[in-house]
Design a protein around this nucleic acid. Structure first.
Length: 155
DNA sequence: GCCAACGTTGGC
DNA sequence: GCCAACGTTGGC
């Protein structure tokens, strides 16, 4: 079972949105970057993903979600009313994919980016590197453990 | 709101 | 295929 990290703007889809509908999968749509999309396609049912809040006041890892449906064509790319509409995406070979995720856990305390940067075990994680824009990235087993450990340490 | 870093586009 | 121009991300 692989581990991942996905970025979201909490105003659009926060850990609280997940937590408030624990039985209802959330459609993870709107990824419009090829590298991120390729990682999306590698996700499998049962995989876990950290939910990272970006472009907001409290930047950092807020909790965990679980993938419940593997990649399928993102409906938003064909919806003209969606901000994620992509008129250049071929209908017979859609460019962008979505996955479905369900709530896993909300951390007692959000782990701020500042703090993540101080953890040696995370030095190779693209997230903590300057200028990084990758919105879906793999997390190694050791990185995952290091983060979960810090999340649990303050409970 | 600023702007550095980065990905994408398009002319050549 | 190069690379300048452009648009977007995302921390600050």
């Amino acid at each position: 079972m692989a581990k991942w990290l996905v970025k979201t703007e909490p105003e659009e889809c926060s850990i609280d949105d997940f937590a408030s509908t624990p039985d209802k999968p959330i459609v993870w749509e709107g990824v419009r970057n090829y590298q991120a999309r390729n990682f999306l396609r590698q996700m499998r049912e049962g995989d876990m993903a950290f939910i990272y809040h970006s472009s907001c006041k409290l930047i950092g890892i807020a909790g965990i979600a679980r993938i419940v449906k593997e990649a399928y064509p993102d409906p938003a790319q064909f919806n003209q009313k969606s901000p994620y509409f992509d008129g250049k995406s071929p209908k017979d070979n859609p460019r962008w994919d979505a996955v479905d995720m369900v709530h896993g856990e909300k951390f007692e305390r959000l782990l701020p980016l500042d703090e993540l940067k101080t953890i040696d075990a995370l030095a190779a994680l693209p997230l903590v590197k300057q200028g990084n824009r990758l919105s879906v990235m793999p997390v190694s087993e050791s990185e995952w453990k290091a983060i979960v450990k810090v999340a649990g340490a303050r409970k």
